[in-house]
Amino acid sequence: MNAIEPAAKPPSALTLYGVELASRLLLGTAHYPSPHVLARAVEASGAAAVTVALRREHARGRTGERFLELIEALGVRVLPNTAGCRTVKEAVTTAEMAREVFQTDWVKLEVIANDDTLQPDVFGLVEAAAILTKDGFKVLPYTTEDLSVAERLLGAGCEVLMPWAAPIGSGRGLANAYALKSLRAYFPKVPLIIDAGIGAPSHAAEAMEMGYDAVLLNTAVAKAGDPVRMAGAFAKSIEAGRAAYEAGLIGMRDMAQPSTPVAGTPFFDLSASPRAASDE
């Protein structure tokens, strides 16, 4: 066989709940300067899915209708969230309403514990996840990097986990990289998506190099000076990070190691080391 390996294989595809995704970037739809910029940013990002929400509709209101038409025109999978829910019941009811409106059983499950950190209420999260998975939902839980909570969520029927990198909208990157590495190492087969806290493409690449399966972000693109260009920058960083992970990164060393071969260095016998030379 003379088959020639392609010079650069595309990174492998991610499968969640039996669905193969088009990319490893999931993009939020909030805070863009205009619907037009949102649409162009989604296109530039190549996002596999976009997150959406439910909010109160006014009498004779058409806000929701117009937004949904915009999203549907993009032809991208939607991932409804339960953002802002503070109790198990609010989250479960919101998920049920979202399933009817968006016609999907996927839900980004959020149960929020605290206004300042928007930290997940991990107790409520596990409880709500158990209720929803029993009801046929495909739950993608927004959680912390805590290993024991991750175990409980998997036990509750979640097949994907979405730990935060840092608080939502903070743009701080991987605040606890060590714990995120541990989580990745502990659950080698579970799809893990970094959700929230990403500020720069380098943060996303760092997560992907660590072996995370995908990144979900919003503010870093939506509030960038040029959201469309930033969406493209994130797409590249996530693809590069994944390719690097699959290619196999070298380990870190404490000391230098010459990259140019030492054998055959000219004058090698004359000045093996400066110290030796000064001894003469």
């Binding site: 929701g64 949904l68 409106v101």
Partner: peptide, 10 residues
Amino acid sequence: IEIVSPRHGG
């Protein structure tokens, strides 16, 4: 009663 419709979200 709550009546909700689609919106942008993160």
